[in-house]
Structure formats: structure tokens, C-alpha cells
Amino acid sequence: MSIFYFIIQQTMIFSIPLLVVALGALFSERSGVTNIAMEGIMILGAFAGVLFMKYVQPILPGQPVFILSLLVAGITGMIVSLLHAYASINMNADQTISGTAINTFAPAFAIYTARIIQQVQQVSFINQFQIKEVPILSKIPILGGMFFKNAYISTYIGVLILVVSWFLLYKTKFGLRLRACGEFPQAADSVGVNVYKIRYAGVIISGLLGGMGGLIFVVPTSVNFNASVAGYGFLAIAVLIFGQWKPMKIFFAAIFFGLMKTLASAYSTIPFMVALNIPTNFYKMAPYIATIIVLIFTSKNSQAPKACGTPYDKEQR
């Protein structure tokens, strides 16, 4: 049973950053702007967050510094995403260009800045954020062991973001307008929706969540930040497509992928999987192969936002 709890806890560590970042990209793409800059946004968000954490931790230990760092990471992500928004919304540029530029810029800038500030490129922090047991809730049978022991506060924040995203997208006027801008912006414009403003909002939300997601990824898996989020930004885009641009499906896609990742990295603790005698690298491949197989059966009716990737041109109305 303890192995089962361990797997669930680990799955959360892999899944939540994917979920948060994919939800970020969701807002951008549902508004009609492709955002392959998520990797770069994650890197700069995590960088700013960890740097803040490093210097504030001695003064303010415990969970508050984590939450403040998440805010710093999110705001940094928003600032970076403005670059993407300006190029793809105001300048009608090809949306992969500024995304690629940001992905190239982010790790270079993080290393450059780290070297100026503290001579070495790795930014270290003290990981004091694991919650051994959440009071009361951890006493719930089964569920307590799964979700309320050895957890990170970011897990709950991630779930909260999921609920808020779903509500925002499907239950508010803003969400309806955002989706309209991604499907048929000319129609949205004809009824008085400012397509440019809505798309800006979409991209900025993606920056906020991307930056936070970067830090959420780094904190439980490491004690220093080395200008990389190991391709998780690209994986998050894969999760977004896998989840058919819908919040709940993205949630399941992220959990599926996180679970596969966990099984791949922790299989040596599971007697039955060791007994199978499959080489480590095949376990590592499994999440990616499984994703492809699932996609083969689910992609026939792709739900991609129709106007995603095309700059809005008023004259095409």
C-alpha cells in the first residue's frame, strides 16, 4: 500500500506543472495565438522565482516564501509573454517566430544574469516546502495517504487553477469571448469584441501560468536551478493537444502522462515491474510511446481552435 501512495504522490509532482503550463497555453491558443514559447516562459519564471526564493528564504522561511516566489515567477512570465503578444498580435508576425526567439533567449538570459549576480550559473535554494502531513485531511482513509501526505502546496494551487480556468472559460462572458476569438475572430469583432484585447489577455494568462508552472516544476524535483526545465514546456504543449484544448481533458492527459513518468522513474520500487525485467530505457520511453498510441485513436476529430496561429486581420471580415 505504501508503494501505491508513493506512486500517487510522485505522479502529482510530475503532473501538476504539466497541468498548470498546459492550462496556460490553453488560454493563449483558445484566444487564437499559438504559444510555443512556454518552455522559455517556464525557464524565466522559474529563474526569477528561485532567485527571489534564494534571497528571501533566510528572512522569511516556510510556505509563505514559496507562495511569494510563485507570484514573482508568474509576474515574470507575464512580462515575457508580452513580447510574444506584441509580435503576434500587434505586428501580425508568424507566431512560431517570437516563440522560438523567446525559447532561445530564456536559458541564455538566465545563465547570463545568474553569472552577473552570483558568479555561478546554478541558483540554489533550500527545499523546505514538502508538507509531511496536512492537518485533519491526512487522517482521511486512503485519500489522506494519496493527496495529503508528503505533498506540496503547489499541488493544491494547481487544482485550484484548473477549477478557476474551467469556470473562467465556460461560465463567464470573458471565456465566451476568448473562445470566439480563437474560433472566428471576425464574428467576435462584428459584435463589438475587441479581438486584440482578448488575445492579449489570453497570452498574458499563459505567461502567468507558464511562469508559475516553471517554479512548480523546479521546486519538488531539485535544490538548484540550472537554466532548464528539461523540455517540460514542450511536453505541456503536447499535453494541451493531447487534452484536445479542453481543461478537464488536459487534466486527465497531465495525470496520465505524470503517472507514466512516475512508473518509468520509480519502477525499481515496484516488485512486479522489476520482475518483468524490461530495460530502464524502455520504461523511460513508455510515456511517450503510450501518448502516441492514445493519440492515434483520439485525433481523428481534432478540436484545435480554428483561428489559432493566424494573425487577426480586420479587413477579412
Binding site: 523540455g231 514542450f234 511536453l235 504543449i237 503536447a238 493537444i241 493531447f242 530505457n281 524502455f282 523511460k284 520511453m285 511517450y288 510511446i289 501518448t291 502516441i292 493519440l295 492515434i296 485525433s299 481523428k300 476529430n301 481534432s302 484545435a304
Partner: peptide
Amino acid sequence: RNVNEVITAIMMNYIGVY
């Protein structure tokens, strides 16, 4: 199968590494 080539290519990157 209409699978988005971006996602398959990303997956193939990692499969290639391992």
C-alpha cells in the same frame, strides 16, 4: 490519423534519446 505532427515529433525526440 490526423495526429498533430508537433506532438508526435516531440514524443519521437524523447523516444530517440532513450
